[in-house]
Amino acid sequence: MLYLFLIFLCRGFLILIISLSFREDSSRMMSIFFPNKWDFYWSLLPAIPAIAVFALLAQRSRIFKAEKQRYFTLIPWLFFIGLVIDTMIQSKIIIRMDFGFSLAHGLSILIACIGIGYGAQSRHMRDLPSDWQRT
């Protein structure tokens, strides 16, 4: 589940990659997902903590060898920070739309809130840093 929520936070980068793969008109493809270009720039912000978590997980063996396991305690915090930032950005976009309903933004807020609840209640997220510190 952690990886699915991290991919969810990186959706701005995924949309960028998909739109760049269309050679004819990548800006038109980008405008489908983000009518306002600042919405796209804001969508890249929650990806920063998610990429940091991916980097920590990818370099797990090097961190173990260097005996710096305390960095794994950052994983739940970065996860929460990314989800809270995403929720705030989606709320800001909805407020700017004068609270007009948007299915995409509503689902984004719902998924982010489910992720926050998962992170708060998940035994895996709670035990992940402590298990890795003991090894």
Rank of each mutant, 00 (worst) to 15 (best):
V53C: 06
L44I: 02
L44G: 03
K68F: 14
L45E: 05
F33P: 04
W38P: 03
F40E: 09
S61D: 12
I63K: 12
L44Q: 04
N36D: 12
A47K: 07
I48D: 02
S61W: 14
K37V: 01
S43D: 02
A66L: 14
W38H: 09
Q69V: 09
Y71G: 10
I48N: 01
I63E: 08
F33Y: 13
A50F: 04
D39M: 02
K68T: 11
I48Q: 00
I48H: 03
N36A: 14
A58I: 10
F64G: 09
I51Y: 02
A52H: 06
F64A: 14
W38V: 07
L57R: 10
R60A: 10
Y71C: 08
F34A: 00
K68W: 12
A66N: 06
I51A: 05
A50R: 04
A47H: 05
K68E: 12
A47M: 04
R60M: 11
P49W: 06
R70S: 12
S31C: 14
I63L: 09
V53L: 07
F40L: 06
S31M: 11
I32H: 13
K37S: 07
Q69T: 14
A58D: 11
A55D: 08
K68G: 07
S43E: 01
A50H: 03
L45F: 02
Y71L: 15
P49R: 05
P49N: 04
A58T: 12
I51C: 03
S61K: 15
K65M: 15
S43R: 01
K37P: 06
S43I: 00
A66P: 03
L57V: 08
Q69E: 15
